[in-house]
Design a protein around this nucleic acid. Structure first.
Lengths: 160, 160
DNA sequence: TATGAAAGACATCATGT
DNA sequence: ACATGATGTCTTTCATA
């Protein structure tokens, strides 16, 4: 479906590190003419290989305490209600500003990535805002510390 | 620690959506002179509020099946060995290209975000590459489907 | 810190190899 | 895929408030 050659990949890698590199800088580093780099990036955008450009926010704006929350919904008497439970939970979580990401997990579960300024606030948030949602059967909290890979994930997700 | 006014926040929000907006476009949208926008962005970069610029890769390069893996390490006879177990697990996972993120979780656990082209390949990868690591006590797989928030997380993390 | 104006750098496009 | 040149736009800097 996607055909990328070495040059495409090299360009993508450079832009991933620093999307503000100018075409001439990229051209110089890869020893190719500017016109070629320009053409390639244009194509990568047209093909949707590059979806969009964005910024990663620094430490000062990032929550200091983050955790994954695994939420299992109650099994309703009427089976069709499960979908309603799930979509209610997901929508409610999505609205909250310190919920960084929400995804469904299997038939009856939802996973959320949450962040707060401190551990205390995070625990308070989980107890007072998440655990009180209706139709929950089980809530597991998986704290995340010390990222070894994907560290700037939080700086990418955090809103301002 | 960080002092952001409304203009800073407005700029950050625009850049988060599209970091290729030119200074003049931003200036126009926010009804401020270009030099002011330029000055603000410069300051945001200097202060590290904006950490860096990057690209988000599109669907074609993203793994179709992603899951969180919760890994608990064995409790060693000699307590000091736990740290060695954990750091071995984390380092090993980090090297793998389809492991998108790795973080520690508490004393004896690690969480990894993994992605593969298909569910089959993902399960195969988990069985053949993750579960066979030494010193594991417990491995929980939490599949992620249908992101409702933070959807382009995968396009942000995926490598090329 | 904000602004306006000027200078230089850059992206973009057309054309041809 | 690469080269070149023309064009308009954008960034950057600086003097000033």
């Amino acid at each position: 479906m996607v055909q990328l050659d070495d040059l495409d990949r090299a360009i993508l890698r450079l832009l991933k590190e620093d999307a503000r590199l100018t075409i001439s800088e990229i051209a110089e580093r890869l020893n190719r003419p500017e016109s070629t780099i320009h053409f390639r990036i244009k194509k990568l955008l047209e093909r949707g290989v590059i979806e969009r450009y964005t910024i990663i926010l620094g430490d000062s704006l990032r929550p200091k305490a983050v955790a994954l929350i695994y939420i299992q919904a109650e099994t309703p008497i009427i089976e069709d209600f499960l979908e309603k439970y799930i979509s209610y939970i997901m929508k409610t979580l999505s609205i909250l500003p310190n919920v960084l990401a929400v995804a469904r997990s299997g038939k009856d579960s939802v996973v959320a990535l949450v962040g707060e300024e401190s551990e205390d606030k995070l625990n308070k948030f989980i107890d007072e805002t998440i655990k009180v949602l209706p139709t929950l059967k089980r809530v597991e909290v998986i704290p995340l510390q010390d990222f070894v890979k994907g560290e700037d994930l939080v700086g990418f997700l955090v809103r301002v």
